[in-house]
Design a protein around this nucleic acid. Structure first.
Length: 123
DNA sequence: GCATTGACTAGGG
DNA sequence: GCCCTAGCCAATG
């Protein structure tokens, strides 16, 4: 395997149960790189593994994200799994999200929580 | 080995 | 609620 990160990401995505979805950021966290959400997208693009349900990986907030030139296919696949998908968003996102948000665990290191101080530094 | 790109994310307007 | 900006990481040229 080229990169351990890539294999790890694929492993996690494979564990996503049918009828559920996860975000690039979540996969990145599970992969051990909470800031590598973008890299996760890169891995997905070159998943190279048909058994990896890369279509279950969507963007933060329920956005479909991307699927090359077959975004409509991704939308259809999610709908086929019983999910309500809008034009560019997945409905009931919080309900179908995976993994289920732990209530006891508070140490949730969100990716890029506060990387920037202010955007008004233009002066 | 450096520079650019991309299926990302959150904040601010 | 949509558009733009800033930062991070891995892959590709």
């Amino acid at each position: 395997m080229g990169s351990d990160f890539r294999a790890r990401v694929l492993s996690i995505v494979r564990r996503v149960p049918r009828g559920r979805v996860t975000t690039y950021g979540d996969v990145a966290v599970l992969a051990g790189a909470p800031r590598a959400a973008r890299a996760v997208g890169t891995v997905m693009r070159n998943c190279g593994d048909p058994r990896v349900p890369c279509h279950r990986v969507i963007g933060a907030g329920g956005g479909l994200g991307g699927y090359g030139a077959f975004l409509h296919v991704k939308r259809d696949l999610l709908r086929a799994e019983g999910l309500e998908v809008g034009m560019t968003r997945v409905r009931h996102f919080a309900d179908v999200r995976w993994p289920p948000a732990p209530s006891k665990v508070k140490g949730r290191g969100n990716p890029g929580s506060r990387r920037r101080r202010l955007t008004l530094q233009k002066t």
